[in-house]
Design a protein around this nucleic acid. Sequence first.
DNA 1: AAGTGGCTCAACCGCGCGTCG
DNA 2: CCGACGCGCGGTTGAGCCACT
Length: 244
Amino acid sequence: MGRAPCCEKVGLKRGRWTTEEDERLMKYIQHNGEGSWRSLPKNAGLLRCGKSCRLRWLNYLRKDLKRGNISADEENLIIKLHNTLGNRWSLIAGHLPGRTDNEIKNYWNSHLSRRIESFIRRPSSSNSQSLPIIMDIAKLNGEQKQKGGRTSRATSTKKKNKPNIPKSTRDRKASAEKENALAYMANQEKNMVMSNNNLVKSSSIIPPMQQNNEGEEVMTSAIMSMDPLSSERESVVLCRSEER
DNA sequence: AAGTGGCTCAACCGCGCGTCG
DNA sequence: CCGACGCGCGGTTGAGCCACT
């Protein structure tokens, strides 16, 4: 049983888009507007899945897209937003005009996460460009689920049929390194909370969501900055997310 | 020059949510 | 109320490029 596929995949084209397909899609949307993605390919004469058309339009063909490198300002904003929003790339993208969620997600995975990992691996290095370590108390408490709204894929029960087994030795190595890094980060984060018990008595005491003066629920998170010249924790700031 | 590994990013996949009949 | 449908989202994949040996 299960859910019907989003579209009939038999006979549909996949992979890279050709310029001809791009033009066809752009022309169609210019005349008919966005939406109705399911019927769009048929109406536009494209041998593509509706989803594929939507993705191509949103991530590549839209006029308001900003191409080129992510600026330092944008990068800082991404880091800040990722702290408050987590892996909610579409929300983060909403704060960065002309950038797509896919672009930000890729940038995070290929640039920023690696930089954060490498910084943590060398906490006493003299790298003054190092990023602040940003962490979320809710995650330490094992409370990753957000309240209401769309649930994060990370928390969903996925991979029933597809165990995450890397195929090549290269992939296995990368996977193992990533796991080591994540375990290390988790350990570091726990130590941070424990070693700053003036502010955080115990991660289990601080609720992941707290109420503000208006009675609204807000997420509490801790931003910990580390002096690159010292292995000591320099400061700990409790902050609240802007919106939830 | 050929082989290998690392990186980037466009595209795909699968699932959750909102809407509608 | 319930199920089907369409959309949107986040995670993952893999082709292509580049650097290094």
